[in-house]
Simulated scan of single mutants.
Amino acid sequence: MENIDLEMIDVFKAISNETRLKILKLLKEPEVNFGYENTKVPEAKPSEVGVCVGQITEKIDMNQSTMSQYLSMMAKAGLLIPTRMGKWTYYRRNEEKIQQISRYLSTEI
């Protein structure tokens, strides 16, 4: 099996959960779904650095531990890009990876 296929297995595992898929959808338009200002670092615009874990947790209504596991899994699969600012971690979509997945689906499957 090719490396790209193995990589895609991790991606598909990460998005095979309804909540994780919802997170990706919400992060597609962070300002619309979370507002234009981050609650912890106002100078960090959601479209540039991402959305704070706490904001995502609040929007999804889930405990912080489970949310952190979900976000970590999605970051390891390359779907999200984490950015650390002080004691807060922000997540944004990896649009390049999402385009790669789209190309993979249209050409390989």
Rank of each mutant, 00 (worst) to 15 (best):
G78Y: 01
E37H: 10
M8Q: 11
S106R: 13
V49M: 04
I56M: 00
T19V: 09
P82E: 13
K59C: 08
V53C: 03
V11D: 00
V32Q: 15
M67T: 15
M74F: 02
E31C: 14
K59G: 10
V41T: 08
E7R: 14
E18R: 07
V49Y: 13
L6T: 09
N3T: 05
E18P: 04
E7Q: 14
Q55W: 00
Y104K: 05
N33Y: 08
L80P: 03
L26A: 06
S65P: 00
D61N: 15
K59V: 08
I101W: 03
E48C: 02
E29G: 01
M85K: 15
K87G: 12
K76H: 04
I109P: 00
K13A: 07
N33I: 08
S65H: 08
P46K: 07
S68R: 15
I109C: 04
I109Q: 03
M74G: 01
E2I: 02
T39W: 06
D10K: 13
M73T: 09
I81N: 11
V11R: 01
P42L: 11
K13V: 08
G86L: 13
E2K: 10
M62T: 11
C52V: 05
E96L: 03
Q99H: 09
I81H: 04
K76A: 05
S72R: 13
I60F: 03
D61I: 15
Q69C: 13
L80G: 03
M62C: 10
T39G: 10
T66N: 07
M73H: 06
Y104F: 15
D5A: 13
C52W: 07
A44V: 05
Y36H: 11
E29I: 00
I109N: 04
N3D: 05
G78H: 02
N33H: 14
L105D: 03
E48K: 11
I9S: 06
G50Y: 00
M67E: 13
K87T: 15
Q55A: 08
I109T: 07
K76Y: 02
N38D: 11
V41E: 08
I81Y: 04
R103E: 14
T83P: 04
N33M: 11
F34A: 04
I109M: 09
T19F: 02
P42S: 13
L21T: 08
I109H: 05
